[in-house]
Protein backbone atom coordinates (compact mmCIF):
# COMPACT_ATOMS: atom_id res chain seq x y z
CA UNK A 1 0.00 0.00 0.00
CA UNK A 2 1.06 3.55 -0.73
CA UNK A 3 2.37 5.57 2.24
CA UNK A 4 0.96 8.94 3.31
CA UNK A 5 4.15 10.61 2.08
CA UNK A 6 3.80 9.03 -1.36
CA UNK A 7 0.11 9.94 -1.48
CA UNK A 8 0.77 13.58 -0.63
CA UNK A 9 3.66 13.74 -3.10
CA UNK A 10 1.21 12.68 -5.85
CA UNK A 11 -1.58 14.97 -4.68
CA UNK A 12 -1.33 17.67 -7.34
CA UNK A 13 -1.37 15.20 -10.22
CA UNK A 14 -4.02 13.08 -8.48
CA UNK A 15 -6.26 16.10 -8.00
CA UNK A 16 -5.83 17.15 -11.63
CA UNK A 17 -6.34 13.61 -12.99
CA UNK A 18 -2.82 13.50 -14.43
CA UNK A 19 -1.60 10.27 -12.86
CA UNK A 20 -1.02 6.97 -14.70
CA UNK A 21 -3.99 4.69 -14.05
CA UNK A 22 -2.19 2.33 -11.65
CA UNK A 23 -0.83 5.18 -9.49
CA UNK A 24 -4.24 6.82 -9.58
CA UNK A 25 -5.80 3.57 -8.35
CA UNK A 26 -3.28 3.33 -5.49
CA UNK A 27 -4.03 6.93 -4.52
CA UNK A 28 -7.78 6.26 -4.49
CA UNK A 29 -7.20 3.16 -2.39
CA UNK A 30 -5.03 5.08 0.08
CA UNK A 31 -7.50 7.94 0.30
CA UNK A 32 -10.34 5.50 1.02
CA UNK A 33 -8.42 3.79 3.82
CA UNK A 34 -6.59 6.74 5.43
CA UNK A 35 -8.87 9.37 6.93
CA UNK A 36 -5.97 11.70 7.66
CA UNK A 37 -4.98 11.76 4.00
CA UNK A 38 -8.60 12.04 2.88
CA UNK A 39 -8.86 15.10 5.15
CA UNK A 40 -5.58 16.43 3.75
CA UNK A 41 -6.85 16.02 0.19
CA UNK A 42 -10.09 17.77 1.10
CA UNK A 43 -8.28 20.73 2.69
CA UNK A 44 -5.80 20.87 -0.23
CA UNK A 45 -8.67 21.10 -2.70
CA UNK A 46 -10.37 23.76 -0.57
CA UNK A 47 -7.10 25.69 -0.41
CA UNK A 48 -6.86 25.70 -4.21
CA UNK A 49 -10.51 26.72 -4.54
CA UNK A 50 -10.35 29.61 -2.08
CA UNK A 51 -6.99 30.71 -3.48
CA UNK A 52 -8.37 30.89 -7.00
CA UNK A 53 -11.44 32.80 -5.85
CA UNK A 54 -9.82 35.21 -3.41
CA UNK A 55 -8.44 37.50 -6.12
CA UNK A 56 -11.12 36.87 -8.70
CA UNK A 57 -12.80 40.23 -8.40
CA UNK A 58 -9.78 42.25 -9.48
CA UNK A 59 -8.22 40.32 -12.33
CA UNK A 60 -9.78 39.70 -15.72
CA UNK A 61 -13.32 40.74 -15.57
CA UNK A 62 -15.67 42.53 -13.35
CA UNK A 63 -15.26 45.49 -11.11
CA UNK A 64 -14.84 44.52 -7.46
CA UNK A 65 -18.11 43.65 -5.86
CA UNK A 66 -18.88 45.45 -2.63
CA UNK A 67 -18.58 42.26 -0.66
CA UNK A 68 -15.24 41.11 -2.08
CA UNK A 69 -12.83 43.73 -0.88
CA UNK A 70 -12.21 42.87 2.72
CA UNK A 71 -15.57 44.10 3.91
CA UNK A 72 -14.82 47.71 3.18
CA UNK A 73 -14.39 50.19 0.40
CA UNK A 74 -11.07 49.78 -1.38
CA UNK A 75 -8.29 51.50 0.49
CA UNK A 76 -5.83 53.72 -1.33
CA UNK A 77 -3.71 50.64 -2.06
CA UNK A 78 -6.70 48.76 -3.45
CA UNK A 79 -8.28 51.57 -5.41
CA UNK A 80 -9.33 50.68 -8.93
CA UNK A 81 -8.68 54.21 -10.10
CA UNK A 82 -5.09 55.02 -10.96
CA UNK A 83 -3.49 57.95 -9.15
CA UNK A 84 -3.61 60.95 -11.50
CA UNK A 85 0.16 61.43 -11.42
CA UNK A 86 0.62 57.83 -12.59
CA UNK A 87 -1.89 58.34 -15.41
CA UNK A 88 0.00 61.43 -16.56
CA UNK A 89 3.34 59.63 -16.27
CA UNK A 90 2.07 56.75 -18.43
CA UNK A 91 0.58 59.11 -21.02
CA UNK A 92 3.82 61.09 -21.16
CA UNK A 93 5.98 57.96 -21.47
CA UNK A 94 3.86 56.80 -24.39
CA UNK A 95 4.01 60.23 -26.04
CA UNK A 96 0.23 60.27 -25.91
CA UNK A 97 -0.34 63.52 -24.07
CA UNK A 98 -3.09 65.45 -25.76
Amino acid sequence: MMTCEQFIDHLLDFDEGDLPSETDRLCREHSALCKQCADYLDSYQKTVAVGKAAFKSDSHGSEPAADTVDNQRPSAMESYELPEELVQSILTAAGAVR
Partner: peptide, 12 residues
Protein backbone atom coordinates in the same frame (compact mmCIF):
# COMPACT_ATOMS: atom_id res chain seq x y z
CA UNK B 1 10.06 6.91 9.25
CA UNK B 2 7.20 4.63 8.15
CA UNK B 3 5.84 7.33 5.80
CA UNK B 4 2.85 8.33 7.97
CA UNK B 5 2.33 11.99 8.68
CA UNK B 6 3.88 13.21 11.91
CA UNK B 7 1.41 16.08 12.28
CA UNK B 8 -1.91 14.95 10.79
CA UNK B 9 -4.07 17.79 12.14
CA UNK B 10 -7.83 17.85 11.68
CA UNK B 11 -10.20 18.30 8.75
CA UNK B 12 -11.90 21.44 7.49
Amino acid sequence: EDGHRADPGSGW
